[in-house]
Amino acid sequence: MNEPMVSIIVPIYNVEEYLEETLKSIVEQTYTNIEIILVNDASTDKSLQIALQFATVNPSIRIINQPFNKGVSAARNTGLDLANGAYIMFVDSDDLLSKNAIKNMMEIVSKQNADLVLGMYKSFNEKGSTLPNIFQNYTDITEGIRVFDYINPELFWNVNSWGKLIKKELIENLYFPEDINYIEDQPFSMYTYLHANNIYLAPSITYFYRTREQYDSLSLIAPKRPISSLNNIFASFKLGMSYFDSVNENKNILQEIYISRVVNGSIKYIFEGALQTKDSLIHKNVLELLINWIRILDPKIVSNESFRKVFVESVNQYLSFLDNTSAKLYIELLKEIKFKIKAYFEQKMPR
């Protein structure tokens, strides 16, 4: 019986320092029925030359050159259009796969008829590696375990597109939003969680996520472009929430997890980073943007505990960064949150 093909999609843009190590970890997979789709997004360094060197000795590699830099979403979408595999995996071009990653995940597919397999991953850099908190309870498992939103909801905080094995049928006609360039993969991941019938967690580290401070630190991103970052978050969140509309079962818990992930895991750090700029105009613009966003949200969304944790619990700390004008805006933000929460509970009261 032939093993199903796995398509590994790697978007590439100016990663000459890391690409060789990444590609080596892919071509050395012990699961051999793979195709490797390298989408060169108009790199200006030696990334393409490195990719070509690997392709000359490995017939499973295909290289696609984007005519100009379109961004990571467009590169992934190009890979999706060309993928022939029954299963898809995304690998970022500076990250690594463990040697048995695909083999271990495909064994779960075979045994459990899984259409989505999550691999545990470690974040690493030159200082060492760490296992994210969401995986701390699973270090001793020896077999893949079924993932349910009401049993192990913390696993749904993993909203990255990379490092997962996805049945292609699950994502037919699903693409990454090319007009969003920050947390653009979160809606894609939420769609897979909402529509997968069998989700499993692999019992091993399958992926190593390289943290590069200038690209991964939200505290560095926020001072440089807090307004565009927030606008991207809002657009990504709107798209992600739209995927809940067509789902009836088990969506409430997942929706709460997703809201908390966005507010606690993204907005919080952009907001705090913006405050630390000590730039009163940035403070004013960020607060106005947040107020206007919260005003259009459904009260049910704002009733999520994350809004209180992020914006209310640290009120004194946040006020210490603000001048009088921005402090008034912050108080207005808190009032808007309170108003929305009150409206939600009034809606729930029997009439």
Rank of each mutant, 00 (worst) to 15 (best):
E184M: 04
P187H: 11
G163V: 12
Y200P: 04
E172Y: 06
Y193T: 09
A202L: 03
N181Q: 05
P177H: 05
L201T: 06
K168V: 01
E172F: 03
E172D: 12
Y191I: 01
N198W: 01
Q186C: 08
N160T: 14
D179Y: 10
T206P: 00
S189G: 02
Y209W: 15
N198I: 04
A196G: 03
P203R: 05
V159E: 06
S189A: 14
I183Q: 02
I171L: 04
Y207Q: 09
E169S: 13
L174Y: 05
F208H: 15
L165Q: 09
Y193L: 11
Y207S: 07
P177C: 01
V159R: 05
N198Q: 14
K167I: 00
N197C: 00
I166C: 02
N197E: 13
V159A: 12
Y175Q: 08
K164E: 05
E184V: 02
P203L: 04
W162P: 02
Y207N: 10
L201V: 04
N197G: 07
Y191T: 03
I171H: 05
L194C: 11
L170E: 07
S204P: 00
M190N: 11
N197P: 00
F176E: 01
L170F: 09
Y209G: 06
A196T: 04
S204C: 14
W162I: 07
F176P: 01
I166W: 09
I199R: 06
N181F: 04
L174Q: 14
F176G: 02
N181D: 08
N173G: 05
N197L: 02
H195D: 02
E172N: 12
K168L: 01
T206E: 12
Y209A: 10
A202R: 10
Y193R: 08
I166G: 03
Q186G: 00
Y193H: 09
I166A: 03
D185W: 08
F188E: 09
F208S: 08
N160I: 11
Y200E: 03
L201E: 03
L165H: 10
Y191A: 02
F188V: 07
V159M: 13
Q186T: 13
G163P: 13
I180L: 06
N173S: 11
Y200F: 15
L165T: 09
P187D: 05
Y175S: 13
S161Y: 01
N198T: 13
